[in-house]
Design a protein around this nucleic acid. Structure first.
Lengths: 347, 347
DNA sequence: ATTGGCACTCTGGCACGGTGAGTGCTAATT
DNA sequence: AATTAGCACTCACCGTGCCAGAGTGCCAAT
């Protein structure tokens, strides 16, 4: 797209105005906004060009112009960089301070989703890493009742997982302690997946000569890791659904219903995020660019967060296509970095 | 209120019809519903009486009748008992089976809120007991890094809580294990509050002769219990907000916004539930009977759940005043009993 | 006490017309 | 060749008026 410099300015003016007011913007409005030094007629012809090129559209033949998804795309890709990313940093830092208090990593992620939603007035979303992809720091077994054992695993990243399961034989708490001690020295810092693999290898070797304790150890570990894999679906924190109702974009109750029903199915959004979890940095998906947001006039700004070089999850913001991208994008970026930093620290 | 028997029947017919259709019900509709053997004119005069007595009201002077809150109240208190509580038990049991798989008690409560919402198509809510009011089964300390310790407590009821805190001195994992072993034998089955109290007593006695380990033990326990009290606000699971949008009662977007904003503040609802947590059995609050639900045309059906004779939390359903009470009330009752049963079993 | 009939009231939907914002086009201007 | 002013045109929006339908209240008759 090679657009005239002045044409770009017009497009940008339209996008900005529409983002602010949610009203179709006419040629007069464009002039009032920034001083072009030309008359509305000129703007009109330029806007007609932009309409032909697919960047703008008209809700009805004699209304002002509204950016198309292509228009937003161009704005985000080309016009946004030049803008000063002005965030109220004090505000952010103040809020972010809340995250620092030592807490379960899950609580921090939940707070993050609330932070994102509060600062943007859109919806904040944060995925929780699958536990099986984190590194084990500590495993503990607790005897609940005859043959019924609970396992608590703490990951190096600060996540905690617990499972219940039944054993073939009854073990005393003392025996369980011995086993967990053994495992803690043996498997420290491996991912659950690794542990499981390692274990499977051992089974062969030990087959003949294992003693009672080791056999139980094997079973425990197998249960702890397997159970994990089975029910370890990703989790998702979502906050700020109510904000969306305040937006004029979703005043139509039909759209809103569809939207909320879609949001109720967290699984869908989870897939949505996980699909792009491997990319680097902030990504923006506008409207139908993402099938899940399809008809809902929604955009998604998302960034992965990581510990070291391992991507653990993603966080971001869902809002209307008419989103304040210039505020949201740097915010999501910051949040991802902040979370990554906390994961690093928590070692 | 001493109402004519036939008058009661009319009131009941109006309530039932309105609950079903959400349309103001006219005299003709009443006749069509159940066979009264009288003409619409007669019904009209009866309905006029009911209106004067405050059980019915008219949205506008020439429309059908709608139950007032007083009307619902009378229906719930007096007319409901005679009805057959017909629930699709198979459906419930099928769903409830999901709750039985051994899981963290929190997960079970969360599933319960989903169950309540799915079966009623209203909102399901379940409070989580304050951890400090449960009985400790097992305490575990895990050393995260220098001077930084995590404590995991498992309650007899099946709840898990974890806290992070900093120690004055650095302790090895081995020492921590000794301490937790000591505590586990010592304090088994006491509530965190009790533990704390017991501890405070010990401090005096030991003041002179404690050795290093015991001093640390004291500090750890103090931290574990105190931390608990501080941040141990009640939690709340809520499910089915989206259902509420499908109800014609909340089609007006103003009402709905207020509603959702109110729901976003879970704390308010929590207070709401905790206020009535000490009562026995299912309670019904209709509309403004409860200040929190005040202007929102909502009712609340709630029941406490307990372990033994100790009430731990409450669960229930929030729906429109026009709620299918005859289905919801027995369902909430069942759910509370089911949860209580699970808490008992989990020992 | 109950009923049928009748007049009345109010809502909801629909058509109608005026207003205003905004466009596209053309002819004049620089 | 680009820009501008002017003008006719097009819709959405809003208020009005009207009609049908549902339901009531009342009254006289049973």
């Amino acid at each position: 797209m090679d657009l005239d410099d002045r044409t770009k300015r017009v497009l940008k003016a339209v996008v900005l105005s529409y983002i602010e007011t949610a009203h179709p913007v006419g040629s007069r409005t464009v002039i009032q906004g920034s001083d072009f030094g030309v008359s509305s007629a000129t703007i009109r012809s330029i806007m007609a060009d932009l309409g032909e090129a697919g960047f703008l559209s008209q809700p009805h033949p004699s209304a002002g112009r509204v950016p198309t998804e292509k228009g937003y795309r161009f704005y985000v890709d080309t016009l946004l960089n030049e803008e000063a990313f002005q965030i109220h940093e004090d505000e952010i830092l103040q809020q972010a301070a809340l995250l620092v208090k030592h807490e379960d990593m899950r609580a921090i992620l939940q707070d993050t989703s609330k932070l994102l939603s509060d600062l943007t007035h859109y919806m904040g979303i944060v995925t929780v890493p699958k536990f099986s992809s984190t590194r084990v720091k500590h495993i503990e077994f607790i005897r609940l009742r005859k043959k019924c054992v609970m396992t608590i695993s703490v990951s190096e990243e600060g996540f905690i997982q617990n499972r219940f399961f039944e054993m073939l034989n009854d073990l005393s708490q003392k025996e369980l302690n011995r086993i967990s001690n053994y495992l803690n020295t043996l498997y420290k810092g491996m991912s659950l997946q690794d542990v499981r693999q390692e274990l499977m290898g051992q089974i062969q070797k030990m087959k003949d000569l294992y003693d009672q304790l080791q056999s139980e150890t094997l079973e425990l570990t197998k249960q702890a890791t397997m159970n994990g894999e089975q029910t370890d679906e990703g989790e998702l924190y979502m906050d700020g659904t109510a904000h969306m109702l305040d937006l004029p974009d979703f005043n139509d109750s039909k759209i809103m219903k569809g939207l909320l029903n879609a949001f109720e199915k967290k699984r869908v959004i989870l897939q949505l995020l996980e699909r792009h979890i491997d990319s680097e940095g902030v990504q923006v998906f506008i409207g139908a660019e993402n099938p899940f947001l399809g008809d809902h006039h929604c955009s998604l700004v998302v960034s992965p967060y990581k510990r070291g070089d391992r991507t653990l999850g993603a966080l971001g913001v869902i809002g209307p296509t008419r989103m304040a991208y210039s505020k949201v994008i740097p915010l999501v970026d910051m949040a991802a970095k902040q979370v990554s930093r906390l994961l690093e620290e928590n070692t």
